[in-house]
Structure formats: structure tokens, C-alpha cells
């Protein structure tokens, strides 16, 4: 508890003053951090001087109106933006203090920083093969090991009981909510250190959403989670920290309670109160 509070104190200022944020990035026991991050899609500047830390074993929510760059930031953290032609990144993304763009092998980075997409995207193959895909990619071959990983991952994603009798069935036959939890299981199967979730509940019904929120609350005991959400209540319910974006810039970032109850910036106050965006 005391440790978390001190983390919170040290990083409270990051959104406000970039210069100070850079120094807090060095201090915080951050799992991931971005410093002076800028990103351009061709001529369009999608992110400008973003400074954020993602402390270990905490859930950070990214909020902001559509098009403000939340997904873009998320896709910098595991370098999915590398796929976009004409996308240029400046500044740094750090994973355990290492520059993700320079020193870490990109496939290794993506193994350590998993991602769950907005639309559930299970592969058109069996449930088992979906979950086993990641471990197989990284060299797990023994059947017994794979069985164990598949079961553990599905249990961690709170979907083992629903699926254990149909592991050989095609994953596309599952409901949207089940598919999304399967995708979470698939991401967990490679034992990532960080989990990125981009509006992972926006296509789901309230019950599936509640299940996934509960799941995220449990995951944070072992993983560092960064989630994009348009649902203010969801951010309040599951996140430890919140960063509010506007037009490619961080307006305010800090402990979720502070951002929602005592926002320092008028625009944050307006947004969380639902007055614009």
C-alpha cells in the first residue's frame, strides 16, 4: 500500500509538466514508460511529446475522445505501428528501462507485451490451437507442456469451465464475449509481462463486459495492464491510473481517483463529466 502511494506521488506531475515528467520516469519503478514520444502518420502528427509511466502491476486507463491517439499510443508500446507505412516515431518507449525501438528484438518485445484487440480476433482454427499458437511460436513442443499452458491460460481468462469440453471446436463458433476472453487467454499463454487492451469490451454485452472487467482486476496482481476505454465508469472501476488525451497530447495523468474527482485541468473535468468529446 505504502509503496503504491509513493509511486502515485512520484508520477502525479507527469501530465502537467513534460520536463518534470522525464525525471519522474527515471525514478518510478515503471514496467513501461514513454518519454517525449511523438508520432506522425505522414504529415499528420498523431502524438506530440507524450510522457507517461506504466507502473508494474497496475492498470492504466487511457481515455479521450475519438481520434485523440489512444490506439496509436497503445500500438507504439508493442510496435504494431511498424506495420503502418509512413508512420514515424520519435522519442522513446522503454520496457524495463530498455528502449523498445532500439535494443529489444521486435518479436521478443511483442511476446513480452501482449495485446488484445478491439474486435475479438481468434484465428479460424480450434480453441486449443488458438491458445497454443503463441507457445508453439516460442518453441514449446511437448504435448503435455502445451496442454498445461492451454488449461492455465484458459483458467486465467476465466473461460476454462465454459470451453474445456470443446477445445477441438473451431473458435469462430464462440460468442463474441467468449471469443474476446479466448483472445485474452491466447495473449496470456505466452506469459507476457504487459497486457495492452484496446477497447476490448466495446463490442460486448454488459455481462461479458463485467466478466472481463473482473478478469482485469485479477490480472493486475501479476501483469501490468494498459487499457483504452471510452467507458468512464469502466476506467473508474478497474484502473489504478488514468491518462486523459486530447488531440495527440496528454492533458492529465495520475491516479484514477484524482483524475476523476479532482481534475487539475478544466478540459479533463469537462470530459469526465461527459460535457464534450
Amino acid at each position: 500500500m505504502a509503496e503504491m502511494a509513493s509511486v502515485a506521488e512520484r508520477v502525479t506531475e507527469e501530465g502537467k509538466a513534460p520536463a518534470m515528467a522525464a525525471s519522474t520516469v527515471d525514478l518510478a519503478p515503471a514496467k513501461m514508460a514513454v518519454a517525449h514520444l511523438g508520432l506522425r502518420y505522414g504529415d499528420f502528427s498523431a502524438l506530440r511529446d507524450v510522457n507517461l509511466v506504466f507502473p508494474e502491476r497496475q492498470v492504466t486507463a487511457l481515455i479521450g475522445p475519438s481520434g485523440c491517439g489512444k490506439s496509436t499510443l497503445l500500438r507504439c508500446l508493442n510496435r504494431m505501428n511498424d506495420l503502418v507505412a509512413g508512420c514515424r516515431v520519435t522519442g522513446s518507449v522503454l520496457l524495463d528501462g530498455q528502449d523498445a525501438y532500439r535494443f529489444v528484438d521486435v518479436n521478443d518485445l511483442r511476446r513480452r507485451v501482449g495485446m488484445v484487440f478491439q474486435q475479438p480476433n481468434p484465428f479460424p482454427m480450434s480453441i486449443y490451437d488458438n491458445v497454443a499458437f503463441g507457445p508453439r511460436t516460442h518453441g514449446v513442443k511437448r504435448r503435455a507442456d502445451l496442454d498445461e499452458i492451454v488449461e492455465r491460460s484458459l483458467r486465467d481468462a476465466a473461460i476454462w469451465d465454459e470451453l474445456k469440453d470443446r477445445l477441438r471446436k473451431n473458435a469462430l463458433g464462440l460468442s463474441g464475449g467468449q471469443q474476446q476472453r479466448l483472445c485474452i487467454a491466447r495473449a496470456l499463454a505466452v506469459r507476457p509481462e504487459v497486457l495492452l487492451m484496446d477497447e476490448s469490451t466495446s463490442a460486448l454485452d454488459p455481462i461479458s463486459t463485467a466478466k472481463i472487467e473482473e478478469l482485469v482486476r485479477q490480472l493486475r496482481e501479476r501483469y501490468t495492464v494498459v487499457m483504452v476505454t471510452h467507458n468512464m465508469l469502466q476506467a473508474l472501476r478497474v484502473s489504478d491510473r488514468t491518462a486523459f488525451f486530447l488531440m495527440g497530447e496528454v492533458v492529465e495523468a495520475g491516479p484514477t481517483d484524482d483524475v476523476f474527482t479532482h481534475p487539475r485541468d478544466g478540459r479533463t473535468a469537462d470530459y469526465v463529466a461527459g460535457r464534450f468529446g
Binding site: N107, R110, F117, F123, F133, T137
Partner: peptide, 17 residues
């Protein structure tokens, strides 16, 4: 669909895999 390919990359698979 692109999302299958991206999903595989996001798990750390290389392009060939």
C-alpha cells in the same frame, strides 16, 4: 482479414510464421 495477421504478430510471431 488483416486482424488474423496482426493477431499473430502481436503474439510475437514473425512474418513467415
Amino acid at each position: 482479414p488483416r486482424r488474423y495477421y496482426e493477431g499473430a504478430l502481436a503474439l510475437g510471431a514473425d512474418h513467415e510464421r
